[in-house]
Amino acid sequence: MLLGKKRKLGRRVEDIKIGEKLKLTEKIEDKDLLLYLGLTNDSNPLYIQHDFAAQTAFEKPVVPNIMLTGILTSAVSKYIPGPGSYITGQELKFLKPVHHYATIDFLLEVTEVDIKHNEVVIQVQGSDEHGDVVVQGQITANPPQ
């Protein structure tokens, strides 16, 4: 964390162009899952217990979808438009479960820029190591002013 340090604001809406893209890769580790579960007090055994998950259609523990959402919203806050951005909407579909230790490639692309309303729309997609799309949708954000 950069406590006490002054951070530079992300880009203003006028500086963002349709077609801008960001690619990032995240590996889902046990520590990330345990932090999430501890922070939210979510005790769904589907997320952590192998013997429980084996009894379900998923067969193995799955990553909570909100963790994938967090990776995407974090990318908006860090990169497009960047620090000072405020997310005003999101519409995501989770097409396939993600299992522990998966590596997900995320692609974000700016598809709309509304200067008058200080708003950008970013299409998002995440694919697993097999190339299967696991999450897709869009995030709407207000860049810093």
Rank of each mutant, 00 (worst) to 15 (best):
K60C: 00
P45L: 05
V98W: 03
L46S: 08
T88L: 06
Y79E: 00
I28Y: 06
L22P: 00
L72K: 02
G4F: 03
L34E: 06
V135W: 05
D42E: 08
V113C: 09
V110I: 03
P61S: 12
K6I: 10
E129C: 04
N142R: 15
R7A: 11
H130R: 15
L92I: 11
K96C: 02
D30Q: 12
G131A: 09
K93W: 12
V98K: 05
S85T: 05
Y36C: 05
I28W: 03
K96T: 04
E109N: 10
Y47G: 10
K21Q: 15
L24E: 05
N118I: 01
Q125V: 04
D128N: 15
S43K: 10
I16M: 02
Y36N: 04
G19I: 08
Q136T: 12
V98R: 05
I48H: 14
E112Y: 13
F52L: 08
I28T: 03
I18Q: 07
D51G: 02
K21D: 06
G82C: 02
K116N: 12
Q49E: 15
Q145L: 14
P143S: 01
H50C: 00
K116P: 01
P97D: 09
L34T: 06
A75C: 07
I139P: 11
Q145W: 04
T25S: 12
Q55T: 15
A57L: 10
N65I: 12
L46H: 04
Q145I: 08
H117A: 13
L95N: 14
F106K: 04
F94H: 13
G4S: 07
I122G: 11
Q145R: 10
E59K: 15
N65L: 09
L68M: 14
L34S: 06
K93A: 13
V76S: 05
T40C: 03
L9F: 02
K21W: 07
G89V: 02
V134S: 04
K96E: 09
E26M: 01
G126D: 02
K8T: 07
L34M: 10
V62E: 09
H99N: 13
K23N: 07
L3A: 09
K78T: 11
L35F: 06
E14P: 00
L72N: 01
A141G: 10
Q55K: 15
K8A: 11
V124G: 09
Q49L: 11
D128Y: 11
K96L: 07
K116A: 15
L3D: 07
F106S: 03
V133K: 11
Y86T: 14
Y101N: 15
K31C: 12
I115E: 13
F106P: 01
K5W: 02
G84H: 02
Q125K: 14
L37F: 06
L33M: 11
Y36L: 12
Y101E: 14
L92Q: 13
R12D: 01
N44I: 01
P97T: 10
I87T: 13
V98D: 05
S74D: 11
Q125N: 07
L37R: 10
T140H: 08
L22T: 01
L24W: 04
E109S: 13
F52N: 06
V135M: 08
S85E: 04
G4V: 00
T140V: 15
D114K: 14
L24N: 02
K27I: 06
Q145N: 08
A57E: 14
L35A: 03
